[in-house]
Design a protein around this nucleic acid. Structure first.
Length: 360
DNA sequence: GGCATTTGACCAAT
DNA sequence: ATTGGTCAAATGCC
């Protein structure tokens, strides 16, 4: 971001603020039952266009600059750990080949996901994420109620895949597993599993022994995902408005994502309620966009990006979508995956504790 | 017997 | 000095 010129900064800010303004307009329309579907659609399209431009600026800036870890500013770093940033290189990293790399902590890409499992079902077993892992350690963590499990890719020996993950149950909510992935899969299964965030590209340059895998999605891919979100995302529910709670599920063509299947188990659908949920999803999108624009001020553009993930987790935005009056929805951004602005968020129904995931 | 998991020890990072 | 990550021997299960 440091290499972004004033002109680009202003343009970026302009696009983001315009997106926020449009989002607010859309929010207003959502609270007016008589508002036409076309109007909402139009505003959504405008919002997406605005954010596509903003994303393009960020991506272009990072591609011409020499600090790709700042791609997307705070956004792409959301869940990554500061020690892995190349801004603070350690001596050993400058000469990795002359050290025993077996036990030192590696400067590998790292990101976190939170996965909730159904209470009472598989509580003792970390959720399956589609990859095959081998447990190689477990440790009591200071201050944590539950031990942390250490897993490495099953193909570590055969294919030299160095991907690892750590699984820790949340102290507050034992049904939630916090899974920290470290390193990318370089094995065969890498082709069909969820890739990590995009920002670690630079870090991989410091780990030349790891062949680059899972190239980050192209900008076109990301834009297409944004478009897909609005055009194909469908949420179904049951009894949401009559009983104040219900099972909620999301269906989306991006089913390769990690945890939707864990979040939605045993749903029942009612095709007649689509409009209501579409409205609530739009509302959450608006809130997300607004919060993003709020957080990205000129100061942020001149400094190291803040850890928006933590901030976002601390900030819960409440809203009451008109069609679901009385049903508070609390949303919380919990994870970043595909290098998008906010790739995955969950929306929790306050009354039932049910969480849904929304990817865009 | 082969494989996965457990667990204590070692060592890096802070 | 303390904490966290990994290794590898021990153990358990099929």
């Amino acid at each position: 971001m440091e290499n972004m010129g004033d002109w680009e900064q202003k343009n970026l800010l302009h696009e983001l603020k315009q997106g926020r303004e449009l989002a607010r307009q859309l929010q207003g329309h959502l609270n007016v039952p008589s508002s036409s579907h076309e109007t909402r659609e139009f505003l959504v399209t405008k919002i997406l266009t605005s954010y596509e431009k903003a994303l393009s600026m960020l991506q272009w800036n990072s591609s011409v600059g020499d600090q790709p870890q700042h791609t997307g500013g705070a956004v792409f770093r959301m869940s990554e750990s500061p020690p892995s940033l190349p801004g603070s290189p350690r001596g050993e990293d400058s000469d990795p080949e002359h050290r025993d790399a077996s036990r030192k902590r590696k400067a590998v890409p790292r990101w976190t996901q939170q996965v909730r499992v159904s209470p009472g079902v598989g509580l003792e077993v970390p959720p399956d994420d589609g990859c095959s892992w081998r447990k190689y350690g477990q440790k009591e963590i200071f201050g944590a109620k539950y031990p942390r499990g250490y897993y490495s890719c099953n193909h570590r020996n055969v294919q030299g895949c160095l991907a690892t993950k750590q699984v820790q149950r949340s102290d507050e909510d034992p049904t939630v597993f916090e899974i920290t992935y470290r390193g990318r899969h370089t094995c065969a299964q890498a082709s069909h599993i969820n890739p990590p965030p995009t920002s670690p590209e630079k870090q991989e340059q410091n780990n030349k022994h790891q062949p680059p895998q899972n190239q980050q999605p192209s900008q076109d891919d990301q834009i297409q995902k944004l478009l897909n979100f609005q055009t194909t995302l469908k949420v179904k529910t049951e009894n949401l408005d009559t009983q104040g709670q219900g099972d909620v599920a999301v269906t989306s063509p991006q089913q390769d994502t990690f945890d939707l299947c864990h979040l939605f188990q045993g749903e029942q659908f009612d095709d007649n309620k689509d409009d209501k949920i579409e409205t609530s999803i739009s509302s959450s999108l608006i809130t997300t966009i607004s919060s993003y624009a709020d957080n990205l001020d000129p100061l942020d553009l001149n400094e190291d990006p803040p850890d928006l993930a933590k901030e976002a987790q601390l900030q819960c935005y409440e809203f009451l979508p008109e069609p679901i009056a009385g049903e508070g929805i609390e949303k919380q951004i919990t994870s970043e995956s595909q290098g998008m602005v906010f790739d995955v968020e969950t929306v929790e129904m306050k009354s039932s504790g049910e969480k849904i995931g929304v990817e865009f």
